[in-house]
Structure formats: structure tokens, C-alpha cells
Design a protein around this nucleic acid. Structure first.
Lengths: 144, 144
DNA sequence: TTGCCTGCAAATAATTTGCAGGTGA
DNA sequence: TCACCTGCAAATTATTTGCAGGCAA
């Protein structure tokens, strides 16, 4: 079963080409870099497809400091730790975790970043409130 | 001695206002948010000043996934770890490190990111080569 | 004085979107 | 068939830059 049928999305020649090139990369790449390696796919389609892949979990999107471009990688594996070269922007995968003995040999670390994503209390509260009022409305609607 | 003279940059009313508002923030903010809180400073000046502050180490710039805006914070303290709410984008400072018992209470973690920045071996090598040839040129120039 | 600052408006650069025609399931 | 895809061109968004006048040191 192909990735496309697995994720219940339509298979087109463009998407196949994008997926193949994405899979072939050894580290995350920009949309522009992908575009240069793929023939007969418009930039608009490329962006739309990358977005779709990210939604489905087929690809992962990264941002790095001081760089307005986004980096994409095929996300079969669960990698989410990288050593990012400040010069060539290469994102080198880091195997394993946590922290110690984890940085690739021969990589000179000058800085690092550690961020957690999730939901703060305020937003969880707001979400809960919204759900409650939605439920109320549904009930009210039922009665009428 | 003011921050401006300390960093050897000119003090102007615009820069003072930007610095004050930046200092007053409890978490990193976008240029747009700052702009909304500062009168009589053009967006161009704001961006130029933020860039200058970052170069001098007075401010720090952050990027977060799925967000094309940059976030700025006054960088007196050495904070560089955050919990980022996926809804309101608030960046909550994390005190201390490493990893354990480090996430703010009441923050529901769904994902995290750990990246190291620095220089890969290839780029260090290229840099060394460039420096060497620059030195060679200097020597050659000396002789002529 | 004078080189650095500033505002304005126009330019970039990456990414997104509207639309009309095409195509996979 | 028909909902979903695609390419094209135009729109958006955040950010940057050229330029002419202004101001801190």
C-alpha cells in the first residue's frame, strides 16, 4: 500500500515526484531547493503539497533563527533534534537524546535552543469555555 | 552609563522608546506588537533598531515553527528556553536547565524542540582555507 | 560639522490564493 | 462523473532598502 492510499490522499505525478525528492534528502531542505530538483511542478503546487504532507504527518516543517525560509523533511523517522550549521544552514540529525554525548562529532556548538510546545493554562481554559458554550448552543438548538 | 554608550551606539529618542518598551515585555514579542506600543517610530526604524540591538547583543531574536514572524526580547538575562503556546504564541520563559522539572506548571507539553547551533566541520575547514588564502594575499601584496 | 539616523515609499522574498481548466478514482 | 488538482498570475505578509533631509556628538 502506497503512502498516498495509506493517508487517503490522491496520488498524482506531481505529488509522487515531490515525495521522491523529499525522501532522497539527507537533511531538511527549503521549498526553493526542492523546486530546483523537481521538474514540471509549479511552486504553488509544491507549497500546497508540502503543506498537505505536513498536515498528514508525511513531512515535517522546521524554522531556524535568522532565516525566513522554512525547511522540510520527510518524516518517516521520529527525528526532531538537529545540529544547525550557522554558515551553510545544514541541519544535521542528532540520534538519541537526552543532551549528553548527543551532538555530532566534529560539530562546534556555539549556541543551542530548547523549546517545548503545547498549551498554556489560559488557552486550555478558553478552549474549554468555547466547547462548553458550543454544547450549550447545540442543546438550545435541539429544543427549538 | 547608559546601555547606548556602553555599546557605543548613538542614543536617539526613537531608540530609547524602543528599548524601554522592549524591556517592559514579559515575553518575546513581534515587531508588529512593538510597533503598536510605540509612538512616533516608523516601522523601518523599528526593524533597523531591532537588528542593531540583536547585533550588539542587547536583544535576542527568535523564530518558532509555523510562524513567519520573528519574536524579539530584551536580552539582559541569559534565558533561551521557552514553553511556546500553540494557540496564543506566548513564549513563557523556562528557568533553569536541564530538562527535568523545567516546564512551567500548568503548561501541557505536546511537542518539543532541541537544536544546537554552531559550525560543521566542512564550514570550519572552508573558513580556515579562506583565512589562509587571505593571509597569502596579504603577504603577496606586501612584497609588491 | 558630519556621519549616523529617520521617515517615507518603493522593493524584496517567501509564501498564499483565486480562478479556470484538467484529471485520478 | 466530480471532487480534488494544477498552473498561472496576482495578492499577501513580513521585512528591507534607497533616498533626501535631520540630528546627536
Amino acid at each position: 500500500m502506497s503512502l498516498f492510499s495509506e493517508y487517503k490522499i490522491k496520488c498524482t505525478p506531481q505529488r509522487e515526484r515531490i515525495l521522491n525528492v523529499l525522501k532522497a534528502q539527507t537533511h531538511p531542505v527549503t521549498a526553493g531547493e526542492l523546486y530546483a530538483h523537481i521538474d514540471n511542478v509549479s511552486l504553488a503546487t509544491l507549497y500546497r503539497t508540502l503543506e498537505l504532507f505536513c498536515e498528514k504527518g508525511i513531512a515535517k516543517k522546521h524554522t531556524i533563527p535568522d532565516d525566513s525560509e522554512k525547511y522540510y523533511e520527510f518524516s518517516a523517522e521520529g527525528h526532531r533534534h538537529f545540529a544547525v550549521c550557522l554558515i551553510c544552514r545544514k541541519m544535521i540529525k542528532i540520534d538519541g537524546c537526552p543532551l549528553k554525548d548527543v551532538v555530532p562529532e566534529d560539530f562546534l556548538v556555539t549556541d543551542h535552543r530548547l523549546e517545548f510546545y503545547g498549551y498554556c493554562r489560559d488557552c486550555r481554559q478558553k478552549l474549554a469555555d468555547m466547547n462548553r458554550s458550543a454544547a450549550d448552543e447545540a442543546l438550545t438548538a435541539d429544543k427549538s
